[in-house]
Simulated assay, not measured.
Amino acid sequence: MAPDEQEKWQIQLRKGALELVILASLRGGAVYGLALLRHLQRFPTTAITEGTLYPLLDRLKRDGLLDANWMQEGEERPRKYYELTAKGKQKLSTLMRAWRQSVTDIESLLATKASAEHINRGD
């Protein structure tokens, strides 16, 4: 796969998994936006920009999956902290099961040496 094709594929994979990745990153408690962004940027497959993160956080909040509250620590300026709601925890659980099933299915397909003839027979 050419580098450009691989990059496009990784972008599509990232887009499909972002909601799961963000919800999973927040399961340990409240996190402010910039800290979440830095955390996601530590991993090549989840590195995103502010322009991607903040609209997604806003949508997840509108969907009732996140709460957001401004908090000030000491003399620092206030930061907006995001945390999972009960609905967000349920959604995370659902997405985790779906992700794990997808990985299992794909791994099975990658390990299988099925021929087209075998597939066409429905075996």
Rank of each mutant, 00 (worst) to 15 (best):
A2F: 10
D4A: 15
E5D: 13
E5K: 14
E5H: 12
W9P: 01
Q10Y: 10
I11Q: 15
I11A: 14
Q12C: 07
L13Y: 09
R14C: 05
R14W: 05
K15E: 15
G16C: 02
G16E: 09
G16L: 07
L18Y: 00
R27L: 02
G29T: 04
G29Q: 04
Y32D: 03
L34P: 03
L34N: 11
L36T: 00
R38P: 02
R38W: 05
H39F: 11
L40P: 03
L40N: 03
Q41Y: 05
Q41C: 09
F43S: 13
F43I: 09
T45Y: 13
I48P: 01
T49G: 09
G51P: 01
G51R: 12
T52N: 00
T52H: 01
T52G: 00
L53F: 12
P55T: 09
D58M: 08
R59L: 13
L60T: 00
R62V: 07
G64D: 01
L65R: 03
L65Q: 03
L66D: 03
L66I: 01
D67P: 02
N69E: 15
E73N: 13
E73I: 13
K80Q: 15
Y82V: 04
E83I: 00
A86T: 12
G88A: 05
G88M: 02
K89C: 04
Q90V: 07
L95V: 04
M96E: 13
R97H: 08
A98P: 03
R100T: 06
Q101Y: 09
S102N: 12
T104Y: 04
I106W: 08
I106Y: 10
E107Y: 04
L109V: 10
L109W: 12
L110E: 10
T112Y: 07
T112V: 03
S115H: 08
S115I: 05
S115V: 07
A116I: 11
H118S: 09
H118P: 02
R121Q: 15
